[in-house]
Write a protein that binds this DNA or RNA. Structure first.
Length: 435
RNA sequence: UCCGGGCUGGGGUAAUGGUUAUCCUUCAGGCUUGUGGAGCCUGAGACGCGGAUUCGAUUUCCGCGCCCGGACCCA
């Protein structure tokens, strides 16, 4: 049979084995988020297109799945969470106690060309904190992220957070010349590691720096000692940024996350969205070339959306790059089905079998039984294919002596258990309990 | 939007301008209403879509779609 309908480019199906692995990753991320007191929010798949135009400009529309609905509204599938949660904060600002700490895991959509680790429909877990400008709030986001990754099985050997501050670049550029196109220069910095050195200087010069300034600028960015910056200039924006970054790093020390953080001044994170701390997570081994995910502080967005001035900091963990990182580190969850029990029927034993099945399910176990009228051999083959740990054979022969047979599928050994005490009131009965 | 490489049963593959498209695996059933991961038997299942050239196209050419990777972009 030929395929009637092809996939939509960049959209993926997840079958049970792979979905099980994804579910386990999501559960881990969310479990850690809950420990930090982040609360889950639910958000719509559609927003008014204007929400994104206001934040990112008219050009953004071509990156969106946007359309006019039957009521004439211009809508778009959400390409990211931040505008939505910002809108939510503005809508109920007075009612919400601060800090507002939220998380959510859900799909987003962008009309882009798929590449490694990038799809048109992709999943993110977003963590945001609104209402605190204290460095501890930034540090808590970093600490959460570090805890989540280590809980997934990664170690500090496998990832690093490159941390910077937006005003370090901005302040530094201010000291050179008022005419520098800061956004353009920052975009150049973001490419620094990807392009030729001369091309990088060219980009800096295009943004308004002289050759000599470009060289000085580059040298200062390479410094891992923040005091080199403050001794170069006493520009207030710059020195404030250095002070703030130091405070954030000191707080990560307190939360036990400092060891994962590296000062990396060429971490810029795209356009002028962020206002303070910015950070990206990278694969230390270099196998995943793009950043795994990123976050930072955006203190002005709530006000821009019509709310009271409200500082904010957050991170978005993209599941597609995260799964690349986990796979290459060898800690991606196993993609196989598991089943606690298969209850095998032989002859007309469905009544008794169903009772056992429902009792085991009542104990919280995953239990399957025959729903196809299959033969003994076929049922055994099916039990094997779903990775059943234990098979309970409910056969006419067993019932004649008021017993069931319990078979351990790993070893192949089997024994019998009395029908009137199986299954017990609690626990997870196996072959070993009756051998 | 642009560039490169792909596309043959569910997965992996072979061959071919002309008869019934190869093999492995998988799936379903059976040998086997009382034993799965071994074997045997039977069955199911494919040339991505459209157009052109041709007596004839899965094969050649063009367009499109999808997949993989890259550029741009990365909120």
């Amino acid at each position: 049979m030929s395929r009637m309908y092809e996939n939509i480019k960049g959209f993926r199906d997840f079958y049970p084995e792979g979905m099980g692995a994804r579910r386990s990753v999501i559960d881990t991320l969310e479990r850690v988020a809950r420990r930090y007191g982040f609360r889950e929010v639910g958000t719509p798949a559609l927003e008014r297109t204007q929400l994104y135009i206001d934040k990112s400009g008219e050009e953004i529309v071509e990156e969106l799945y946007s359309f006019t609905d039957q009521g004439g509204r211009e809508l778009a599938l959400t390409p990211e969470l931040t505008p939505t949660v910002a809108r939510m904060v503005v809508a109920k600002q007075q009612a919400l106690t601060k800090p507002i700490k939220w998380f959510s895991t859900r799909p987003f959509w962008r009309y882009e060309e798929p590449q490694q680790g990038r799809f048109r429909e992709f999943y993110q877990t977003n963590i945001d904190c609104f209402g605190s400008s204290d460095p501890a709030a930034d540090a808590e986001i970093l600490a959460f992220t570090a805890d989540a990754l280590t809980e997934l099985g990664l170690t500090g050997e496998e990832f690093e957070f490159r941390v910077s501050h937006r005003d370090i670049l901005g302040g530094l550029l201010e000291t050179f010349d008022a005419d520098v196109d800061v956004a353009r220069a920052i975009r150049a910095v973001d490419k620094r590691e990807k392009i030729e050195r001369t091309a990088y200087y060219d980009l800096l010069v295009e943004s308004g720096l002289t050759d000599a300034q470009a060289r000085t600028f580059d040298e200062l960015l390479s410094a891992d000692d923040l005091s080199e910056l403050t001794s170069f200039s006493d520009n207030e924006r710059l020195t404030d940024a250095v002070t703030n970054l130091r405070a954030v790093l000191a707080a990560t020390e307190d939360f036990g996350a400092r060891e994962y953080c590296t000062i990396s001044l060429d971490t810029a994170r795209g356009l002028d969205y962020y206002t303070g701390t910015v950070f990206e997570c990278f694969d230390s081994t270099g196998d995943v070339s793009r950043s795994v995910f990123g976050g930072g502080r955006y203190d002005e967005l709530i006000e821009e959306y019509g709310g009271q001035p409200t500082p904010a900091v957050g991170v978005a963990l993209g599941h597609s790059t995260l799964s690349l990182l986990l796979e290459r580190a060898g800690v991606w969850p196993e993609e196989s089905l598991t089943t606690d029990y298969y209850v095998l029927q032989v002859g007309e034993t469905r009544g008794v079998a169903a009772e056992i099945v429902q009792s085991l399910r009542g104990l919280g176990h995953t239990v399957e039984t025959d729903v196809s009228g299959r033969s003994f051999g076929a049922q055994m083959g099916y039990a094997d294919s779903i990775n059943a740990q234990t098979v309970i054979i409910v056969g006419e022969q067993d019932l004649e002596s008021d017993q069931v047979t319990i078979k351990d599928m790993q070893s192949g050994e089997q024994t019998t258990a009395p029908l009137d005490s199986f299954p017990p009131e609690q626990g997870r009965p196996t072959y070993d309990d009756y051998a």
